[in-house]
């Protein structure tokens, strides 16, 4: 009698444990899939061997790039500081204000005289994009989007050809 109730008790416990581990186990991917954006490596744009990384201080980069072909600025509603756009013929450089400094917000390639450090240029084919980067980034419509750390690389396609290559800063949401 005693033994049996102990047995029943024991099996109850074990069953409950199994249930819990089962339901806990299903949570696993949720926690581990969290840091997919940080798999090492970086996305940066190289211009004449100069690294232009997102969110970097723009001042030294601008100095090295010299006089832009054109320049525009925009204030955001109600805030001090200006979003600035510098045009260098073959690419645009956008900055955003961060306190005293301006930081790199976006780099947009304009023509096929430039390519990404990985070798992709405007006009390249869909296959080239997928072999240079990966097919995972396809948004299903017209673009490839890759995010690593602070940078999102966006490659927009038109008629299966690369029509725009953009590096953009990632802001936490």
């Amino acid at each position: 009698m005693k033994k049996r109730s102990l047995l029943v008790f024991a099996s109850l416990m074990i069953a409950a444990l199994l249930m819990l581990t089962a339901c806990g186990g299903s949570k696993e991917p949720e926690t581990s899939g969290d840091d997919s954006s940080d798999q090492g490596g970086k996305l940066v744009f190289l211009y004449k061997d100069m690294e232009i990384a997102m969110k970097e201080d723009a001042a030294p980069i601008l100095e090295a790039l010299g006089e832009p072909k054109s320049y525009t600025e925009a204030a955001s509603c109600a805030f001090e500081g200006l979003d600035k756009t510098y045009y260098y013929g073959s690419f645009y450089l956008y900055t955003y204000p961060d306190g005293e400094k301006d930081r790199v917000n976006m780099v947009v390639l304009c023509d096929d005289t430039l390519s990404t450090p990985e070798g992709l240029a405007i006009g390249d084919s869909k296959e080239k994009v997928e072999s240079t980067y990966s097919a995972d980034g396809y948004n299903g419509v017209n673009a490839y989007v890759y995010t690593k750390g602070d940078c999102t690389l966006t490659i927009i396609m038109e008629n299966d050809k690369v029509s725009s290559i953009q590096y953009g800063a990632v802001f936490e949401s």
Partner: peptide, 15 residues
């Protein structure tokens, strides 16, 4: 009797 109690206790503890 004590042993039975101990098994029960250890079971709950371990789980």
């Amino acid at each position: 009797a004590k042993k039975r109690s101990r098994i029960a206790m250890i079971l709950v503890l371990v789980v």
